[in-house]
């Protein structure tokens, strides 16, 4: 059941920025989100900016390069495209577009200036990476930006982790310190306008564990303080409660062990001591985790941000797992 807050914020969203603490599965979630949007008939671009080749691995295709590659064609007519944005070609493309630098481009490369600008110059790398995503988000089939039809209905960005995401998105501020005038400054300003308006949402992936939840809460505060729109907190790998309240209560009853032993014997399972006690230990451990998860879930709900839930799949995300997650997002109102 989609929450009204989520439905409202998703209406105008075209760029979905997905972040999260390392290890929470943000690449998988970004892929599932992109797949969910494509399965609804949209043309979607899924972009990564850290050179991890997470997208090609999630979709089991050869490593992505500078060209956008079609990953999935959905029967609904939707399409999912993938792109791994690299700073160097992005800078070359940028120089070509704005300066028509044939020879100077080569000279820049030769003296190490391209390496300098793309790896060292603080903030410049981020401007280039986001710049490419900005270009793709606003790209049209007309002769100029703003003319014709948009090429992509939605763009999903697998962004840097929560610890770095605000610095990454806050390109204008980063660049303001080092480039006070000039075209890169102008570019940074257009990008910032887009990132702060209603068309961009930042989603935060978390697990129901202490550190990721703490980082998510911090990220919500930091993103909000910098006027970025927070879309949803996406709880990944959520455990299903497999024990009813009655069974949970029965765990305190010393007679349970004997009952389990009798039931196992009735089902012709060898009810050895280790197996019976092991089953009870597993149940106690499960209850303890569920309690911790409840606590963490309450902490997330107190943030006043829509929450989406993705189940832990016993078989993992290989094979059809990604589609199951995409389906779960669609069922929760992701449009």
């Amino acid at each position: 059941m989609p929450s009204p807050a989520l439905a409202r914020s998703l209406t105008d969203a075209r760029l979905h920025v997905v972040t999260g603490k390392g290890g929470t599965g943000k690449t998988t979630v970004a892929a599932a989100l992109a797949l969910a949007l494509a399965a609804q008939g949209r043309r979607v671009l899924l972009a990564e900016v850290e050179g991890r080749q997470g997208i090609s691995q999630a979709f089991d295709v050869p490593p992505l390069g500078d060209d956008e590659v079609r990953l999935v064609t959905d029967p609904s007519g939707g399409e999912l495209w993938g792109l791994s944005v690299d700073a160097k070609p992005a800078l070359m493309e940028y120089l070509q577009t704005f300066y028509k630098l044939g020879r100077a481009g080569a000279a820049l490369e030769k003296v190490g200036a391209i390496d300098f600008a793309t790896t060292i110059a603080p903030g410049v790398r981020d401007v280039l990476l986001i710049g490419k995503v900005y270009e793709a988000t606003g790209r049209t089939d007309g002769a100029r930006r703003g003319q014709g039809r948009l090429v992509y209905d939605s763009v999903v960005l697998d962004a840097p982790p929560t610890g770095r995401v605000v610095r990454f998105l806050n390109v204008n501020h980063e660049v303001a310190d080092i480039a006070r005038v000039g075209p890169i400054r102008g570019q940074a300003e257009s990008i910032t306008r887009m990132l702060r308006d209603r068309s961009t949402l930042v989603h935060i992936v978390t697990l129901l564990e202490e550190m990721p939840v703490q980082e998510s809460v911090d990220a919500i505060a930091e993103l909000t303080a910098h006027r970025f729109g927070v879309g949803a907190v996406i709880v990944n790998l959520e455990r299903e409660a497999l024990l009813s309240a009655a069974t949970r209560a029965a765990l305190d009853d010393p007679a349970l062990e004997e009952r389990v032993r009798a039931d196992l014997t009735a089902a012709r399972v060898r009810a050895s001591g280790p197996v019976v006690r092991g089953l009870l230990a597993e149940a106690e451990d499960h209850v303890e985790r569920l309690l911790l998860e409840d606590e963490m879930r309450a902490e997330i709900r107190s943030q006043d941000v829509p929450v989406l839930h993705l189940p832990a799949l016993p078989g993992g995300v290989d094979g059809g797992g990604l589609s199951v997650l995409a389906q779960a997002l669609t069922e929760q109102g992701v449009r």
Binding site: E240, L242, T247, R259, D263, A266, L279, L280, A283, P314
Partner: peptide, 30 residues
């Protein structure tokens, strides 16, 4: 085993007690 016990409870022979064991077995399987 969980299947077997669940069928048994449906027929009324295992009752309440077996349902706890069924849950423990399903949790274990996961």
């Amino acid at each position: 085993a969980a299947e077997q016990l669940a069928e048994g409870s449906d027929q009324g022979s295992g009752g309440q007690a077996a349902s706890a064991t069924v849950e423990l077995l399903r949790l274990h399987a996961a």
